[in-house]
Design a binder for these strands. Structure first.
Length: 812
RNA sequence: GCCGGGAUGGCGGAAUUGGUAGACGCACGGGACUCAAAAUCCCGCGUUGGCGACAACGUGGGGGUUCGAUUCCCCCUCCCGGCACCA
């Protein structure tokens, strides 16, 4: 054993050993309970970033910990390989997206291996490979046949100069990121998945997910957004037909003073035909991006259409306005406006001098808008009713006139999956003039995306490639064209968890998926709390309903890792504030990088990156190395089992076994890796103070070092493998099991109680653990730190004893 | 704008169920070792007052509940994540 800590040799040797012995290859043949630990797979952007290091270290710690606890562990890894950045890089570097992607994968795989992850690389997948996307094309065709995928027009960002569709990310302040042109909203036909058909189940099953953070479930509930309200129809004055709106506040109907429709609404289009100014306003509304954040923060603007509708209950005529704050995609794309009781309506009514009519009594202030529920007034027959009563009565009145009814509404919209981009999975549809949209038959799958292409920056190469799009109709054999749109990349990441389980199956997934699924522990960034996690849950249910898997939910436990920030914002290439973990690994080794990452912050919290502190993690490993070196230099010795110990040795054994319990709890239940590490540091600090080298002391030291090595091995596996080999030359740490705390070492008969006077810390006293409450009280009020406050007629009013913690003497 | 989080020393963080605020580490200061430096080891380290014992203040701001609040409740500020075509 070397005196200095040779991290490079240690890490290379450990990683070579794991490779040669296939140490982390998972098998379905096992008597042990299975543990499927999945980390969100990376986008192969080129190099590992700190977020990856954090994510995959967390997953690896949990995997290795559970392996030691006796589980049959699978930890796979792969590549979320389709996506926009490959196209941008290809244009910039004059290469093909595929080549760029495969080179990135190769490099990042080397980096991941250097991190020392206990991954079963046999199961590696890359979503851009035909053997992967073949199966999602197959699922697409099945869902298309079932009507769960359909086509409709929807709105995209259109760059009129480049002539391309832009992602929301590519729209900066309403302009195209390359051309600088003002972006326009444009309607184009696209494929949609009917996720709304599963809205109810996606909502209800959240209640089953006890292993998910409450905040994620809350976000998903709000995103699905089930609301109970009422549809109300306003007959259009001078025309046939009604304007339908949806409201969650039917109780405020008698306070409606106008109605507002989205710029895209049919009534707006109709009114604009004879009103050029309105047409210009609607065109103005159609400028800017489609992103909801942009729409919602835009200045509220509107224009009167000149049309009127009739209030369904009081018969008043209300003006119809076009308003940019009305979302075309929610409800009916039209709202009844009640300025007295809605923030946005209030602001809008003030701006355009529209009437404001209060119909709900104020609770405590006179300020409008008053958006809380309350008792109605000025509402005719409904006055005096509360929210529930008036909602019922008003919907009944609407029902009687056939102008409305109660309705539940979801905020969730169907998922648009078409992308007008090249680097994605081709949509397996053939357009035939005679037969219409024909799904590609299973025996003709996959529809392979050509990889040898030239990206000229103007549109997708396959849209200009007849050898791709020219084909024949599978039904009538006539001339036909392939769909040239590709799938949203969320499509690939929505089912990869099932593919890992049956990575080489000649179908989407086989029985092995039912062995491994659901994933026992999923680890990934909090930024995926809604979209990815909702789509994956949706896909799981789709795959269940086509008979591929049995479980209802894909992820039993979810750990949402916080962001790695630098200078206050997310580390990202575009912001140019990245710190390259490779430098860290090169100069300190993977164990230091892993230790520091786990020590710097609890996993769910965002982590503000600071370069200092890495040195401290490395220093700890050097001290650990040195402690073991100095110990084994004196010869082999068995760990302590029996024998009378000094108070000092009893104390260190007490601390050791308390630490074993704490670390197990911190890894397994709390996922609090930072406190696990600090408790081991404290133990090592205490051990360092013991200098004797007699046999008994050395046996206790052996016991401590052996256990410390086991406790730390999930976090710093390389050094622990090497240290274990020194401490126990005839065994291997991968065969070692997780230590059990020795209860007999943890018996304490005395305890220190904190003494408070009126809640303020004044001292402490050491008592026997058996001491009765009354005796504790008697003892406490005789302590000098308490009696010195018993002057000037002060008397003891009350004594509060918290067992094993404190005594609070209340004096008055 | 809407939804979900967060704020504790110079810094990262700890305090697990309302019970000792600042564990552990970083940085910094002092000392030992050294010709010297690095490394290592020892000591100190919230603020203010005090030689000291000790005392007062202190967990983003304001209010409340409680014997006791970083923790629970109400209001506010700032920061972070998401908002359906970044992944």
């Amino acid at each position: 054993m070397q005196q200095q800590y040779p991290f490079k040799e240690i890490e290379q040797a450990a990683q070579a050993y794991w490779d040669q012995n296939q140490s982390f290859v998972a098998s379905e043949q096992s008597d042990k309970p299975k543990y499927y630990c999945l980390s969100m797979f990376p986008y192969p952007s080129g190099r590992l970033h700190m977020g990856h290091v954090r994510n995959y270290t967390i997953g690896d710690v949990l995997s290795r910990f559970h392996k030691m606890k006796g589980f049959n562990v699978m930890q796979p890894m792969g590549w979320d390989a389709f996506g926009l950045p490959a196209e941008n890089a290809a244009i910039k570097n004059n290469t093909a997206p595929a080549k760029w992607t495969y080179e990135n994968i190769e490099h990042m795989k080397t980096q991941l291996k250097q991190l020392g992850l206990g991954v079963d690389w046999n199961r590696e997948i890359a979503t851009c490979k035909p053997e992967y996307y073949k199966w999602e094309q197959w699922l697409f065709t099945e869902l298309f046949k079932k009507g769960l995928i359909y086509k409709k027009t929807s709105t995209v960002n259109w760059d009129p100069v480049d002539g391309t569709v832009l992602a929301n990310e590519q729209v900066i302040d309403g302009r195209g990121w390359r051309s600088g042109a003002l972006v326009e909203k444009r309607d184009i036909p696209q494929y949609f998945m009917k996720i709304t058909a599963y809205a109810e189940e996606l909502l209800n099953d959240l209640d089953k997910l006890d292993g998910w953070p409450e905040q994620v479930k809350t976000m998903q509930r709000n995103w699905i957004g089930k609301s109970y309200g009422c549809e109300v129809e306003f007959p259009i004055v001078g025309q046939s037909g009604n304007l339908k709106v949806y409201t969650t506040r039917p109780d405020t109907l008698m306070g409606a003073t106008y109605v507002a429709v989205a710029a895209e609404h049919a009534l707006a289009t109709l009114a604009a035909q004879s009103n050029p100014k309105l047409a210009e306003f609607i065109a103005e509304c159609k400028r800017g991006s489609v992103a909801e954040a942009d729409v919602a923060t835009a200045e509220k603007k509107g224009m009167d259409t000149g049309l009127f509708v009739t209030h369904p209950l009081n018969g008043e005529q209300l003006p119809v306005w076009v308003a940019n704050y009305v979302l075309a995609s929610y409800g009916e794309g039209a709202v009844m406006a009640v300025p007295a009781h809605d923030e946005r309506d209030f602001e809008f009514a003030n701006k355009y001098s529209l009437p404001i009519k209060a119909v709900i009594k104020q609770s405590d202030t006179d300020n409008l808008p008053m958006t809380e529920h309350g008792i109605l007034f000025g509402s005719g027959e409904f006055s005096g009713l509360n929210f529930e009563q008036s909602s019922d009565a008003i919907s009944a009145a609407l029902n009687a006139k056939n102008l409305g009814k109660k309705r539940t509404q979801f905020r969730l919209r169907d998922w648009g999956i078409s992308r007008q981009r090249y680097w994605g999975c081709p949509i397996p549809i053939i357009h035939c003039e005679k037969c219409g949209e024909v799904p590609v038959p299973a025996d003709q799958l996959p529809v392979v995306l050509p990889e040898d292409v030239v990206m000229d920056g103007v549109g997708s190469p396959i849209k200009k490639d007849p050898s791709f799009y020219e084909t024949t109709c599978p039904t009538c054999s006539g001339k036909a064209t392939r769909e040239t749109d590709t799938l949203d990349t969320f499509f690939e990441s929505s089912w990869y968890f099932a593919r890992y389980a049956s990575f080489d199956a000649n179908q989407m997934c086989d029985e092995r998926a039912n062995y491994w699924l659901p994933v026992d522990q999923y680890v990934g960034g909090i930024e995926h709390a809604i979209l990815h996690l909702l789509y994956a849950r949706f896909f799981n249910k789709l795959m269940r309903d086509v008979g591929l898997i049995q479980n209802d939910e894909p992820f039993t436990n979810l750990l949402t890792q916080g962001m790695v920030l630098k200078d206050g914002s997310k580390m990202s290439k575009s912001k140019g504030n990245t710190v390259d973990p490779q430098a860290l690994i090169d100069s300190y080794g993977a164990d230091t990088a892993r230790l520091f990452m786990m020590f710097a912050a609890p996993p769910e919290q965002s982590l503000e990156w600071a370069d200092s502190g890495v040195e401290g993690a490395n220093r700890f490993l050097r001290r650990l190395w040195k402690a073991v070196y100095e110990h084994v230099e004196l010869g082999e010795i068995a760990a302590y089992t029996t024998g009378d110990l000094s108070a000092e040795l009893k104390a260190i054994r007490l601390q050791l076994h308390l630490t074993i319990e704490k670390v197990a709890d911190d890894y397994g239940r709390r996922h609090s890796f930072n406190t696990a590490i600090s408790s081991v540091m404290e133990l090592m600090n205490a051990l360092a103070k013991i200098e004797a080298t007699d046999v008994l002391t050395r046996s206790v030291r052996q016991e401590v070092l052996q256990n410390v090595t086991l406790l730390l091995s999930p976090i710093v596996p390389h050094i622990c493998q090497a240290l274990w080999a020194e401490l126990k030359p005839n065994s291997h740490i991968l065969e070692a099991i997780w230590p059990l705390a020795d209860k007999t070492a943890m018996v304490q008969d005395e305890v220190e109680l904190v003494l408070q006077v009126n809640g303020k810390l004044r001292g402490s006293m050491v008592i026997s653990k058996q001491m009765a409450k009354l005796a504790i009280e008697q003892l406490a009020i005789t302590q000098p730190c308490v009696t010195k406050f018993l002057v000037d007629n002060a008397t003891v009013r009350k004594i509060i004893v918290v067992p094993n913690k404190l005594v609070n003497v209340v004096i008055g």
